[in-house]
Amino acid sequence: MKCHQLIETPTHKWVFFGRDPEKPNKIIDTNQYMVITSNKALLMDPGGIELFAPMLANIVKMIPLEQLTHLFASHQDPDIISSLGLWDQTLPDAKLYSAWMWEGFIRHFGMDNISYEAIPDEGMSINLEQVELKFIPAHYLHSSGNYHVYDPAAKVLMSGDVGAALEGPEADIFVEDFDAHTQKMRFFHQRWMPSNTAKNDWIARVRQLDIEYLCPQHGRIFQGKQVAQFLDWFEQLDVGTGINRSA
């Protein structure tokens, strides 16, 4: 599994994990992200049960496990959080932040020790030591209870399934040719994203944010001006249309 430090500020860093060559073929490739401060860490969209062992191996190389205090699940999907049952035995004192409406569902993955911190519809902020992280609403993109993580200091937006692309594990971490990349994103957004209204509302809010890195849970990371390019591309795309592919 690749492990790449995305950005380092005086107070914290962002790390990317993904592209595991040993991943079973039929499961979708996922990106995991972690914010590390001096004594704490937040792991975002920890991944599916098959990803647990490589994730654990990479994390213990980086920090003592006690430091991993916070987990975040953008939504309830299995590729996001089906590893929960194993994390629950590994980090009994951790907190899991996710949508209030998914608590009863996510607990089906097995959760006896970790505490569930429900995020309200309007989102919320947490402090990881002196670092502020905002869970911003992204409902219906694609899940009806869905959040992204914005870090105003590092200018990073972890955008869950928004910006996702369907590519093999050999793909690069960063978007190179934006236009070529849209080919790999189009169907995913048309089929998995249900609502133009939700999409446009999200775009309007995200345009207000200062973003240097837009980090989706599948596919590649957008950097610099590619972020605005992505928002423009997403704006003109009709979503909720993936069933009529030939139309």
Partner: peptide
């Protein structure tokens, strides 16, 4: 600690 954690730590 679960055994998978210990072995992962050994690897690290």
């Amino acid at each position: 600690r679960p055994y998978y954690v210990i072995v992962a730590q050994v690897a690290a």
